[in-house]
Design a binder for these strands. Sequence first.
DNA 1: CGTCCACGTCTAC
DNA 2: TAGACCTGGACGG
Length: 415
Amino acid sequence: MPEGPELHLASLYVNKTCEGVVFSGPVRKSEVSKCSDVPFTCEAYRITATSRGKEVKLTLTPLKSDESKQRAKAGQAVQPMDIVFRFGMSGFFRLTREDELPKHAHLRFYSNEKPCRVLSFVDARRFGSWQHNGTWQAGRGPCIMFEYESFRENVMSHLSDRAFDRPICEVLLNQKYFNGIGNYLRAEILFRLNIPPFLPARAVLENLESEDSCENQKPVKNEISDTKKASARTKKSGVKEETADLLRLCHTVPLEVVNLGGKGYDPEKADYSGFEAWLRCYYVDGMTSIRDHNGRTMWFKGDAGPMAPKDSKSPKAKKRAKKEDDHDYTDKKKASRSRRESTTKKKVKQERMTKTPKKAKDTRLKETGSKRKKTEKASDVNTPQPETRSNTRTRKSSAAETIAGPKRRNVRGTR
DNA sequence: CGTCCACGTCTAC
DNA sequence: TAGACCTGGACGG
């Protein structure tokens, strides 16, 4: 879930699903999580959420009652508490019944309902984190989506910062200036403007206005617009996109994802196809990809630009699958695209660009030998898990999803 | 089975 | 500027 739009969608999800829900008791943490315990307990409290860039803040608000003194005495919270979350690569929130806790539910808030429900912070890879009594992380810039003017000002007034010595695609991941932009957004944004990703950032930015020249057109807003959208579609890349500059697209492109109304980037979910169809560049068949200086895959089309890594390594063009898992709240199915499929063309390109494909940082360790670490893993959730898939793993690729499942994607040049 | 890859930070040499 | 931190899906043998 984790770029600006997904974080914001997560906050909307919490506000929507937890509206009117009364939570009760202590906040509970999984055994495996290394994040701090959250010292909050209360007979009755509510949960609301806000987002800023790549962070979400939950506010736990105790309900009023006459006996606040007694409560305070009993160690119960009286004051609200804020908890600030970062999602890492895999974090999200989910409200479920207590007997259906998701795997990797590392922080949990229990309702006082009859069949109890639980709001969980779920994070398979555990790169996410939280901080109680937290504030927005110092050093992160204004939100690209909801603090647009100050975001823009913050960039334009700091162009002398050495941070802008780097290629534009790498600077776009600098959260001090682009709080909310992540790997798919940088690709989509640069693609819209046809900007070679490895142009020097300062050169790309220095001629932009400090104030948005498109000011009149106002932010994209959460307009669940009516019917005019259809026509706007047809003449896409009309005025708007052509006059919009890079900084403005850092604002509008993420808001497009919010307005898609799904979950954003989340291949596991049923409504991923809407997001997938929205992507024009990232992971799209026919586009080029190389690794930037930090080992992150940059997707683009055409010229890479002068600051491209010399020995440039292009990652293997892998395919991606969406699995049909349907336990979703909104089941709006769509025909799944088959856009990232054939790799034939890319292979040729790879041959040219690839020297020694460096391994993903992510995985390098395992392979370089270091044997298995000690940690005999405790169950992720301290709730007993029905350990259905023990070591007798069956390849499950054939059941459930054959109908419209992954097979589709592999359609090669059948055109 | 093993390898590669993934929406992101962090901190240590 | 490398690693470290993690799990799991897709794919290849």
